[in-house]
Amino acid sequence: MISGRQLAVVAARVAVAASVVFGALYFVKALSDLDGRARANSELSFGDREIAGGNAILVSQDDAYDARSLIPPGATYRVRAGSLLRNAKPLTSTYVESWYRYFLMPRRPASNARWIICYGCDASGLGPSFENLWHDDNGVSIGRLR
């Protein structure tokens, strides 16, 4: 007759054995997964790595880099998304503004900012004072109100 205490010891051993078996099996898998991720990360270009999540949102990495080089760090800016964008991705219109907020810091978003990132918006609607400093074939332009 097995007592409760003997049964408990057996159960404790089962717990340890399960940890050893699954730990060993998945240790190998974990190393393989981590190795694969390290390799994939090292194969990324500098831009792919820096833009990272933005690659699923932006139509081109150039937009982000040009916005960062054109808009001074202490300036404010606004993102105007519109329907004239070509090659848009499913996440573009929803997240382009918040992604730029992350990427362009310490530049501040402001609704009345002179700097405008026109992401498929109608640039003519920005008025004659809009100075278009950069644009691409996808309908993205970056400029400022004079």
């Binding site: 390290a38 790595r49 810091m105």
Partner: peptide, 29 residues
């Protein structure tokens, strides 16, 4: 060995996680 592999996996990782670029890292910035 595990931590060595984990270090290599994170050494050149991009910021893909939505919550991370949406508010955790912007708050840090």
């Amino acid at each position: 060995v595990f931590f060595e592999a984990l270090f290599r996996s994170g050494r050149l990782a991009g910021l893909y996680e939505f919550d991370a670029w949406s508010f955790w890292v912007p708050k840090a910035k």
